[in-house]
């Protein structure tokens, strides 16, 4: 047997042993070889050696990185997200201050009562768009997810029971109070005609998108 052959045979054995080494991580078919391996003392020794190698490697990498994580890395993540969300420095503020800050922008040129009315309109529309508490929560979750993850123009669909709908962020901008706000459309269809709503939501410090304005629009264009 040439050295190459030997090398190849050894790699084949190691690949087989890998199925045992990696347990559930290995693909289904690979696990069939298990039993045979354990009857061969040489294979068993190799298996132990491979396991020890990886444990040693992991331990050495961890040891090299012992101690606190460099400040710059934590900072990169935290300031990066803060800059995106426009919430830098707002984290310690009490909830009512945040609410007030949101409202300050949200009702440009109008009183707080208007926002209250708007949110009631949104609630009423949501009830009209959905037929159950479950559907309402699926829709609410989809709205939040769409606004959090989709670029403008790309929609997320939802389906619950016999209803289905689509949420599409349309435009993104930053409020005067530093909050991110997005206009979006949501269209729901069950059995009959689709219902379409145009809405505006802003992101609070907890990462929740609060819908502040919602109005029905001409149906039929979205789904």
């Amino acid at each position: 047997m040439t050295r190459d052959d030997e090398q190849r045979e050894r790699e084949a054995l190691i690949a087989e042993l890998g199925a045992t080494l990696d347990k559930a991580a290995a693909p289904e078919g690979a696990r069939a070889a298990d039993r045979q391996t354990f009857e061969d003392p040489e294979s068993l020794a190799l298996l132990r050696a491979l396991r020890a190698d990886e444990a040693a490697l992991t331990a050495e990498l961890d040891r090299a990185l012992a101690g606190p994580i460099p400040e710059r890395l934590v900072e990169t993540v935290e300031t990066g997200f803060a800059a995106r969300a426009g919430t830098r420095g707002g984290r310690q503020a009490p909830w009512w201050a945040l609410a007030a800050a949101s409202l300050a922008f949200l009702v440009i040129g109008a009183g707080g009562g208007l926002w209250w009315a708007e949110s009631r309109i949104d609630q009423a529309l949501l009830r009209f768009e959905t037929r159950s508490e479950l559907e309402r929560s699926v829709l609410a979750e989809t709205i939040n997810r769409a606004l959090e993850t989709q670029v403008s123009g790309e929609s997320l669909d939802w389906r619950s029971g016999g209803s289905m709908g689509r949420v599409t962020p349309l435009r993104t901008y930053r409020s005067r109070s530093g909050h991110w706000c997005r206009e979006y459309s949501r269209t729901t269809r069950f059995n009959g005609e689709p219902i379409a709503v145009l809405a505006l939501a802003c992101r609070n410090e907890a990462g929740q998108w609060v819908t502040l304005r919602a109005e029905p629009k001409a149906a039929g264009s979205e789904l």
């Binding site: 030997e6 090398q7 045979e9 050894r10 790699e11 054995l13 190691i14 040489e42 294979s43 020794a45 190799l46 132990r48 050696a49 491979l50 020890a52 190698d53 990886e54 040693a56 490697l57």
Partner: peptide, 23 residues
């Protein structure tokens, strides 16, 4: 296989001893 080879040749062997590996 390469990791095994390299560690087998390493002076501070972390395993019980040489001669355990087959092939």
């Amino acid at each position: 296989a390469k990791l095994r080879d390299a560690l087998e040749l390493a002076p501070n062997e972390h395993l019980a001893g040489p001669g355990l590996t087959g092939g």
